[in-house]
């Protein structure tokens, strides 16, 4: 089915068209959900909520720009909305022992890890750090935009990004060291 017809049918609440749209784009949107959520289950829930919103708001898509991009924005904005709701009641305690590290450069060879591990390292970041990192590094937003989206200052956005990178680097290096240690012990035995 043509995309414009598919969208039109979805606007008319045609269940078949909605199903087709879901199966067409789920594999595109789900990795995005995984990056913004802390685990697989939460990502599935987020995909569910995002598609409901997409079906609700699909009539506001006027054909300007990429439809896939429009859907991605909905997924990200939905994640931000949830984050801000939680932020009102959440107090995040962040261990700042690592912040003294200023270097966020890493040897590319240390990233020879499975995607699952890399994803889990990002998911384990404190929520605000994860959002700033994802928005800046993976979705190409500026610090000004991030500040507006998350209701934080530009300085906070920059600081959060730096800290996120430091944490990521440290964890990846630790994993690498652990892998190396396991390999050596296997060779020794």
């Amino acid at each position: 089915m043509e995309q414009s017809k598919l969208i039109k049918d979805c606007i008319n609440n045609n269940r078949q068209a909605q199903e087709e749209l879901y199966f067409k784009y789920k594999d595109v949107l789900f990795p995005l959900c995984l990056k913004y959520c802390k685990n697989f289950t939460e990502a599935e829930d987020h995909l569910h909520d995002s598609f409901l919103l997409i079906f609700k708001k699909i009539n506001s898509y006027k054909g300007k720009g990429s439809f896939e991009g429009w859907m991605k924005r909905i997924v990200i904005n939905k994640a931000i909305d949830k984050f801000k709701k939680e932020k009102k009641t959440r107090t995040t305690i962040i261990n700042d022992n690592l912040i003294s590290m200023t270097d966020t450069i890493i040897d590319e060879s240390k990233l020879n890890l499975s995607l699952d591990i890399i994803l889990s390292v990002i998911q384990e970041l404190p929520k605000q750090y994860r959002f700033v990192f994802n928005l800046y590094e993976l979705d190409n937003h500026t610090h000004k935009e991030i500040a507006e989206l998350l209701d934080i200052s530009i300085g906070t956005s920059k600081s959060n990004l730096h800290r996120a990178k430091v944490i990521l680097k440290k964890r990846i290096e630790n994993i690498d060291t652990l892998n190396l240690h396991n390999t050596n012990s296997n060779h020794g035995s």
């Binding site: 594999d27 890399i118 990521l168």
Partner: peptide
Amino acid sequence: KKDIGKALNESLKGLKLSP
């Protein structure tokens, strides 16, 4: 040597997981 942000971005481009 690469910035960890950019390096992770490149790595995750190949991420394909289904719900």
